[in-house]
Design a protein around this nucleic acid. Structure first.
Lengths: 105, 105
DNA sequence: AGGTTATATAACGATTTTGTTATACAGATA
DNA sequence: TATCTGTATAACAAAATCGTTATATAACCT
């Protein structure tokens, strides 16, 4: 159970097609930041800021491996069940935008 | 099932504490626009625009009765189940902000 | 050390959001 | 008709959002 105030803040983060799609991709498992840069038609700094926004909302966790940073859904977030529920309502698009680097996934 | 694009637009509408609270109140049934004006600490035109935004997103239906306009959740919206699911995660606040008019509810 | 790759931050501009006040419109009623 | 109440729209300002380019930082690799 959440306050309207708290939930609205999370929904504001989810209320963006780029971020929502990033989250959907992370539902399949950890994603390297570089794969988002490859996948979306916006600059690397823009991707970085979207990730920061979701991290600050507590929705993401990160893991550094060498020079790569892998992001995943934060299953311990109090909003995790809601996020999953919403993501399950999104069509899986055929977005073959594989990471071009050696990030090992 | 929805596209990330479409769902994000709805979530953007929901990503505002005022609108989310208005929706929560409508979950209890139809609400007169005037009751929102009484309930929230923003101007009547601001309330009117929040309502318009939700109407345009297809989330609300309106019914005119004399000079009053009553709003309710649009149960036929493809996003209705999602909206309900989200509203069910919101604490019921004790918001005794009854409508001061004769809007007959 | 010096260069390359991956990511983050800073600074800026265009656009959107969200509020305000002023005004218009709709319906009820004296 | 004139006026009151309820609601919507217009015009505007402040703040937030989201993109860009330039630059900084971190880690790897000669």
């Amino acid at each position: 159970m959440h306050t309207a105030e708290a939930l609205s803040k999370v929904l504001k983060v989810l209320g963006d097609a780029t971020r929502l799609t990033m989250l959907k991709q992370m539902q399949d498992g950890e994603q390297c930041a570089c794969s988002f840069v490859d996948c979306f038609d916006i600059s690397q700094p823009a991707i970085s800021r979207h990730l920061k926004m979701m991290r600050q909302a507590g929705l993401l966790l990160e893991r550094r491996d060498k020079q790569w940073i892998h992001y995943r859904l934060n299953e311990t977030s109090p909003f995790y069940p809601i996020v999953i529920e919403l993501l399950n309502n999104i069509e899986t698009e055929v977005t073959d935008c594989g990471c071009e680097t050696d990030c090992a996934i």
